[in-house]
Computed example of a mutant assay.
Amino acid sequence: MQQRDGAPGSGRRLVGAVVLAGVLVATTAGCALLRGPDEVPAPLHGTGTAAPRTPGADPTASAEARRIAESASPRTPTAVPTEAAAADPAVSPIPVGSVLSEADVVSPKGSVRFHYRVVVGADGTPSAQWSSFASTLPVPVATTFLETPPAVGDGLTWHGVGDTTLGGGPAAGAAPASTALDPGRADPSWLGAIVVYSAAESASPDLPVEIGPGKVLAVQPVRWSVPTRTTNVHPVDGGARPNATGKASSDGSADGAPTAYRIASEDLIGSVASRFGLSVKDLVWLNPDVTVYGDQQYLYEDTVLNLDPFRR
């Protein structure tokens, strides 16, 4: 006689219950095992989802480390994509053949004299043309244009723009036909004086001190006559703001418009451009050699940026 331990199907129900309980326990335990006690989900801003946080990470220190590493690799600034549609910055050219300045130059004692005129060439670059040179000095004579005039008798330490040896001395010769001035600027009117100086190669016991090497022999203000030009770049100082806290200067501008800006610590090229109502494209056009560093394009502190479109 076959013995029955219970009602039909009761064994199967018991096994099924045990299996189901095991699955629930394993599932619950698995959830706990997949996430450590320190790996608490951090919310992502604006997404409503969560992102894992690495234990012990210091985001401030990481950002500073990246900043230090990036500062060692300056790079050319790039305009933001939204500026692509902006008009290219430009200044109207000075007509070819324009005479920007012309005068006779005579030293105080009349020992040196010549004539010059500054004319715009076919390539748009102004050139100084020299003629009628004469000198009674026993040393060669040179001339140059300077922004700030020295005094007669000073020693010349910088030879300015358009530096040219005119002749004179033992190897007397005719003045060269012309000398190109600053190729980077179409308008040379920032140069305030024409200076004549001794081009003697070395001092000599027989050479008077006043005509020794580099001694200034004559200084004469330059009167410029530059045709009116137009531009679509008009900087206006909107005042200091975050990442643009440097000092602006007008440098004698007739309308008070800013002409230069000294970069302060933490200045960003985009913020500086915005301060003056310019695009980054405009600011780079005004300063072709400007460099930046870091993903946010920081500018180098104490660098002076040009803001005058007529002096770029």
Rank of each mutant, 00 (worst) to 15 (best):
V19G: 00
A42P: 02
A69C: 10
T82K: 08
S62K: 06
V25F: 03
R75V: 13
S71H: 12
A65K: 13
L34V: 15
P41R: 02
D38N: 15
E83T: 06
T28I: 10
A79P: 07
L14A: 14
G9M: 03
V18S: 07
R53H: 01
T49K: 06
L33K: 06
R35Y: 00
S73Q: 06
V40E: 13
T76C: 01
G46N: 07
L24R: 04
L33M: 09
A57T: 15
P89E: 02
L24I: 12
D58G: 13
L24C: 07
A61K: 07
V15F: 06
A61F: 04
A72F: 09
A85C: 00
S62L: 12
A61Q: 15
A57R: 04
V18L: 14
T49H: 04
P81S: 11
A79I: 03
A65P: 05
G30P: 00
G16M: 09
A86T: 13
A29D: 02
A7E: 14
T78D: 06
A72S: 13
C31E: 01
G36P: 02
L34R: 14
A57K: 10
A86V: 07
C31F: 02
S71L: 03
E39Y: 01
E83C: 07
P43T: 13
T27I: 14
S73L: 15
C31I: 01
P77M: 05
V80I: 03
G36I: 01
V80D: 09
A50E: 11
L34E: 14
A42C: 13
A84N: 08
R35M: 00
A79W: 00
V25W: 13
Q3P: 01
A79D: 05
A32Q: 12
P37R: 10
A50H: 10
A32G: 13
A26D: 12
L33S: 11
V19N: 04
H45Y: 08
S62I: 07
A61S: 15
E64I: 07
T78W: 04
T49C: 03
P37N: 03
A85R: 14
T76H: 10
A87T: 13
G11K: 11
T49V: 12
G9V: 02
G36H: 01
P52V: 04
T47A: 09
A63S: 12
G36E: 01
P8F: 06
A26N: 11
A86I: 05
V23Y: 05
L20S: 15
L44Q: 12
A72K: 12
G48M: 08
A90D: 11
R4F: 14
L44D: 14
